[in-house]
Design a protein around this nucleic acid. Structure first.
Lengths: 192, 192
DNA sequence: CGAAAAACAATCAAGCATGCCTGCATGATT
DNA sequence: AATCATGCAGGCATGCTTGATTGTTTTTCG
């Protein structure tokens, strides 16, 4: 952790927040290489100097952005409504098609080549992954003591990731819904 | 476009080939931003000037690399041996954990922000995707006339994509094999 | 109210990647 | 054999991004 300063100022906190939000938005829209500190700062409505004040280096900025994304995704996860299994599967998949996942995807790919980011990303992603699994089990009413159930849920989440990856290029919602419907059926039978 | 002429010189063809191979390897190892034309040229054992001679712009180089990767993946796909369903699922998933998929993944993410590349990538990926589906159906001995079978196979391929994406950061083979085993079972029951 | 500290803005220098251009070597054509 | 086209190598200039420095404004606290 770099920031030893506890943010007491409201304006400072707001600026920092806007920078992180802008960083995530830029990641989702322009990707890693396109998310220059100048671009992020402009989108946040502050100067590059301000950005540098809060995050001395570009790496600091996106390291913080990684944690921000992880926290946001975690919140989105906990906010899922609990309904029947089909709705649960659809809701889980939807989490992997939004801008947050898009930003996370760019971060993953970028982190796979930047040694510094990789550790942070893998660690946080493992945390979010475990939380996703836990919540998925809960939403689906799965009994993990039964053999195979754990792997069934994991595979379902991996499928959701794959669908999100496919959505990156072409947002074929119709196909997605058909696959979700069928896999919800499969999972439902397996968990019954 | 300058010389659309068929390459008559052997040396020229070899150089072009090595440049493409180097581009793919660099993509898998250093990602999009790290795959500078200088880096690619050095890995190919040629000068930057030679690289520029064959691919006037960096975009030309990676546009060609996209097609090269698509063709390689297509070949790897057709080379899959046909065994029982469990082996088939494992083989399909394996295709999404190698360097070719890794390179393709970097290309997808990069293409999602570069308008020029996007068209080429989506087009070629659609082709490879269809071929993947066709071969998967064949390997699994699936009867697509039955409702739900098509979506089952599609979801399986999406799961493979998701597993490959997860492998980008942490290569957890044990987890992958467990998931593959379980879902091979589920798919087998569904297709029976 | 005044001073210190923090937040913010703007400019500067350095590094790097791309694209262009020139020069040289090798193979093809007549 | 002569000439031309092609493949290849290296240097040059431009543009962009980053990180550092300096100056200005705002907030906080004595």
């Amino acid at each position: 952790m770099a920031a030893v300063t506890a943010p007491k100022q409201d304006r400072s906190r707001a600026t920092r927040q806007r920078l992180l939000e802008a960083a995530v938005a830029c990641l989702a829209e322009h990707g890693w290489a396109g998310s220059t500190v100048a671009v992020v700062a402009e989108r946040a409505g502050v100067s590059r100097g301000a950005a540098q004040h809060h995050f001395p280096t570009r790496e600091d900025l996106f390291t913080a952005a990684v944690e921000y994304v992880a926290e946001e995704r975690s919140q989105a996860l906990r906010a899922l409504p609990r309904r029947d299994r089909h709705e649960a599967v659809a809701a889980l998949v939807d989490l992997y098609t939004g801008p947050l996942f898009r930003a996370a995807l760019h971060l993953w790919v970028a982190a796979s080549d930047e040694a510094q980011l990789r550790d942070r990303v893998t660690e946080l992603e493992a945390r979010v992954g475990r939380e996703s699994h836990r919540i998925a089990v809960e939403l689906l009413g799965a009994d993990e003591s039964r053999p195979g159930v754990r792997e069934t849920v994991q595979g379902l989440l991996d499928m959701a990731r794959g669908l999100g990856l496919a959505t990156l290029l072409t947002d074929d919602r119709a196909r997605r819904e058909r696959v979700v419907a069928q896999w919800a059926r499969l999972v439902n039978e397996e968990l019954a």
